[in-house]
Every structure is written in C-alpha cells, then in structure tokens.
C-alpha cells in the first residue's frame, strides 16, 4: 500500500453512526468437486455501511467473486447469515430474492453479461421490465441511465458493436436504472484498458459521491482500489486486512491528468 493511507487492525471496522446496508456474518462457501472440497469462503465477516465506497482486494482465488455473488444474492452461502438493509436473506424464497436483486441491488459483472443481439437500450430496460415499469416511462429511464454513463448516442447499438468499455458502461447503466441503493461491481475495470477503466471509475465514484449510492467493487488494481473510502483485503476466504483510504483518488482529476499526457 502507499504512504498516505493508514492500516487499521481487523475488527476495528464498524459503521459508527451509519446504517449497515449489507452484512455477511460468519459466511462460508464450500464447493465440492470430485469429492474434493474447495473452501472459497471460510467464516467471513463483512459490513458495508450506507453510502460508503468499499474496495475488496486479494489474490486470485481468495474468494472475492464468491463473496460478491453471495452479497449480491446471486448465490447462496453454505453457511452463515447475509442481511440486506437489515433483512435476513437466507429465509427468502427465490422469487423474493429476485425482487430484492431487482429493486435494491445493481450488479456489474467482470464479463459484462449483456443479452446478445439485443440493443443497449433494451439491455438497460431489462430490470425495469421485471419491476413492472412499462412503455414510455421505461425507455425514458433507460435512455437517461445510458446518458448518465455517456452512451446517449449508442442507444440502438448491439453489444458486439460496442467496445469493451462501452459494454461495461451499458452494464453499469443497467445496474443503476432501477435506482438501487447498492451497486456491486466485480472487477469492473478488469477487462478494460487504462483510459476506459478511468471512465468506468469516475462513473462509479460519481454514483457514490453525488447520489449517495453504496458501491462495493472488487479489483486487483491498487490505484483502482484507492478510489474507495475503505479497502478490505481477502486471503483464503477470510478478511485479513482492512484499511481506510486517507487520500482518495478522484477519478475526474486522474483522468484529466491522463488526458493531458501526465504520468500514470
């Protein structure tokens, strides 16, 4: 890590006066493959505070994606408790989980996961389709979301007619079109070049600072993680370190510097 951030011991976290929007308590995930057990998560604890921007880092295979899928309600833990805005999730039926994913959580995948042969606009409309917003209202909101990520002129492009960075921005637009309180992004810049990565980070940081949306992102990149307010490091399926970022990287400034030809 760098000299301008301070490391705090594990367990000293806590949201103080702020609400806990996402909580994982003693969560384990165990995959059984050919009778060999793989423990992706081993009794992990994590709290995500309302309105914070949190980065999760850790070596490959440490369980970052597994954790994101579980707190994004896309997967179930083998044991442990997950709560979303105070509500425990494990007792919910699949359709109730679908409703929570739809209304409160926006998920951005490393591999975009857009519907093929479907326009950017239709892709962004998708969550609204399932929340019962229809007609003009739906396309208006989808358009708005695409404009917010700078793709107002690419509404009718198909995913394969867009660059990787643009596809990721469509995915972000899809994640925020339902105005969720939480956006989870698993290596959102992982597949992108530096410049596209900066654009994606400034969108995510804007969401957090200007709209107060809680953002959790996974990254391998030190620089990317320091866009967040707090960094949690995983190893072997556990939180091994936690750090408050003293001097956040401001995505706009960094991008401006980059465009002016400054050093990375």
């Amino acid at each position: 890590m760098s000299e301008n951030s301070e490391t705090t011991p594990i367990g000293a976290r806590g949201c103080e006066s702020r609400r806990v929007v996402l909580e994982a308590r003693d969560v384990s995930k165990c995959y059984v493959l050919d009778e060999i057990e793989v423990h992706a998560l081993r009794g992990l604890d994590l709290e995500v505070c309302d309105g914070e921007m949190l980065a999760i880092i850790g070596p490959s295979g440490s369980g970052k994606s597994t954790l994101m899928h579980i707190i994004g309600l896309l997967d179930r833990p083998s044991s442990g408790i997950v709560t979303v805005e105070g509500e425990e999730v494990s007792s919910m039926l699949p359709n109730q989980l679908a409703a929570v994913r739809n209304k409160r959580i926006g998920f951005v995948f490393q591999s975009f996961n857009l519907l093929a042969r479907t326009t950017a606009l239709a892709n962004v409309e998708l969550p609204l389709v399932y929340s019962g917003v229809s007609g003009a209202e739906r396309s208006r909101r989808a358009k708005e979301a695409l404009e917010r990520v700078g793709l107002g002129d690419r509404l009718n492009h198909l995913p394969n007619q867009l660059s990787g960075g643009q596809q990721q921005r469509v995915a972000i637009a899809r994640a925020l079109v339902t105005e969720p309180s939480i956006v989870l992004a698993d290596e959102p810049t992982g597949n992108l070049d530096t410049r596209s990565g900066m654009e994606v980070m400034s969108i995510l940081q804007d969401l957090n600072t200007e709209h107060g949306i809680t953002v959790v992102l996974v990254t391998h990149d030190d620089m990317v993680s320091r866009h967040a307010q707090r960094i949690v490091a995983l190893r072997d399926g556990k939180v091994v370190r936690e750090e408050i970022v003293e001097k956040r990287v401001i995505a706009h400034e960094r991008r401006a510097k980059f465009d002016a030809g400054g050093e990375e």
């Binding site: 699949p94 679908a98 996961n113 519907l115 969550p127």
Partner: peptide, 13 residues
C-alpha cells in the same frame, strides 16, 4: 446464460 442474466436483474421463475 440468458436466463441467468434475466434472473440476475430480477426476473422471477
């Protein structure tokens, strides 16, 4: 995979 995407954004069974 299409079904996975639809479910991820909130489609019910």
């Amino acid at each position: 995979r299409e079904i996975g995407i639809r479910k991820a954004v909130g489609a019910k069974t």
